[in-house]
Structures are given as structure tokens and as C-alpha cells.
Computed example of a mutant assay.
Amino acid sequence: MKGITLVMLGAMLWGISGTVAQFLFQQNGFTPEWLVVVRLLASGILLLFLGLIKKDKGIKEIWKNKKDRTNLISFSILGMLGVQYTYFAAIKHGNAATATILQYLSPVIITCYMAFRCKRLPKLNEVFAIGLAMIGVFFIITKGDIHSLSISELALFWGLASAFASALYTLQPIELLKKYSSTTIVGWGMLIGGIAFSFINPPWKFSGVVSIYSIVGVVFVVVFGTLIAFQCYLESLKYILPTEASTLGSVEPLSAAFLSVIWLKDPFGFMDFLGMTCIIVTIIILSYVKKGNKDEISENSLLDTKL
């Protein structure tokens, strides 16, 4: 019960932070660029500080190996920064619920990639899961009407880009995760990604409405939606299996959808719910497909995807 509670709390905080980001973008005039750079810098510093408190030797050791340094910098810019920006851009042009659901297509992309890399055809249950995911996306972006899109083209583009970036983010650090802790990799990834993005959008380049609500929103995204959510998810793995954590983590799009409807009054009809259900079932199927497949990527490399 402790593991279940922790993983569900972490996933809910991730989902809620997406809705809070939507509130900052659409009602307070914040830009995704500013929120991304601030979140990366602040969260990276906090995670590395936490690692130092826990005496994580990997925080210093990772810089002594040239190959590890190169892989870390590549992951930081292409993986970490890529997934953060595409996700927030999808929220900006659409809403948190749709952006989160579309990002959940990343396991489908990973499954297709691994089948190609291992030179095998997808298994029957993988084909079923992929087909189910495609049906889910169809319901979400068309509401069942094949003649029109129910979301903007930019929201669809950034949502799908977020799924591909999330897949890259998951696959890139596999070798690093075999040698160093997740705290080390994610902490440095966020900090380096934030520093790199600062050259494009420095953290002092700000636009938006400053109020007590917007300040609380930024603090929530950085602290609760990143640091605490990350720790809850990691702590849960002491009590439950990664496959179980991945499945229970599906409450993230549910929490994002629920809060965006209740708080921000976003429309969310039967077709949206049906599409989301299809994609969540897809995640459950693929989580347990990977459980018994030694040719697939390490389950532990999936544990930070939602960050």
C-alpha cells in the first residue's frame, strides 16, 4: 500500500503540474520558454543538492569518464530539454490533458524502435496495443469526425513531438543508468539542459502577470511537480515492481484531465475519455510485455520518463 500510494501521488503531482502550467500560459501570459528554463535550472540544482546530501558519489564521478560526459551532455540537450520544451509547447497550444495523453504514446514508439533494432516483428499483443493507441489518438484529435480536427495543428504537432522526445529521453540514458543513479543523471540533465537553453531564452527574459497565484504556480511546478513527484516515484520502487509503477502511473493523464475540466473548464467529452482509456490500456499492455522480454530496454530506464 505504501508503494501504491507513493507512485500514485507522484503521478498525480506530474499531472497536476501540467494543468498548473496551462494556467500560467493561458491565463497569466507566461511563455513555455521561460517556464522550461526556470524549471530545468531550479529542479536540476535541487536534485543535485539532494544527491550530495545522500552522498551520491556519481555526481562527481560521472565527469571523470569522457564517454559518460559526452553521453550526459547529449542526453541533457536532446533528451531532457527536448521533452520538457515539446511538452510545455503542447500545453500552450492545446491543454494539459491532451498534451499528457499524447505524450503517453512514447511507449508505442519505443516498442516499434526495439522491434526494429532487435530485427523482429512486433508480437501479437504489441500489435494490438499499437492499434489501440492509434484508435485512442483518433478519438482525441477528431472526436470521431474524420473530416475535422478537434485540436489545433500546433497542439497536435507539439503533442506528437513530445511523444517522440519522450521516447528519445527514455532510450538515450540506458548506458548511464547502468553506472549512475537516476538522481545524478536527471539532476545533471536538467541543469545542463537549463544552462544550454539559457542562451536561447535567459531566465531573466520574462513576460506575464506576476501575482501570488502565478508565483505559487511556478513553485508548484518546480518543487511539487518535479522534485517531490520524482522522489515519490523512486521511493515507490522499493515496494513495488517497475511494471506495476508504470501501470499505476497512468493516473497522470487522469489527474490532468480531471483538474483541467474542473478548474480550467476545458471541454472533455465522451470521445476524449474513450481515447484516453485506449491509450492507458495500451500502456498497461506494453508494461507487462516488457516485463518478460530480456531483449527490451531495462525497465529501470523508464522510471524517469514523466519528468
Rank of each mutant, 00 (worst) to 15 (best):
M190P: 00
I101P: 01
I212T: 15
C232E: 06
F258P: 02
N300M: 13
F197S: 11
D68F: 05
L72F: 03
Q103M: 13
I174T: 15
I215W: 09
I195Y: 01
F273W: 13
G217P: 03
L35Y: 03
L237T: 06
S255M: 14
L46D: 05
I284Y: 11
V210M: 14
S106T: 12
V289G: 07
G194E: 05
V7E: 10
A167T: 05
A21W: 00
K265D: 11
M114S: 14
I151E: 01
F270S: 12
P122N: 10
G136E: 07
Y87N: 14
M134K: 01
F164K: 10
S236C: 14
L259S: 07
C278W: 01
F157M: 12
L248T: 04
V38D: 03
S182Q: 14
V127A: 10
L176C: 07
W63Y: 13
N300S: 13
G10K: 04
L168K: 01
G194V: 04
D295I: 12
K60E: 08
L24G: 02
S150L: 00
V37I: 09
T226E: 05
V127W: 10
P107I: 05
N201E: 13
V223K: 02
L264K: 06
L191C: 08
L52E: 11
L302Q: 12
L35G: 02
T170D: 08
D266C: 08
S181R: 07
V37A: 02
K290S: 10
S255E: 02
L248H: 01
L302I: 14
S43P: 01
F157R: 02
E235Y: 11
V261E: 05
D68Q: 11
I195T: 04
L72G: 04
F230C: 09
F270H: 08
M190A: 04
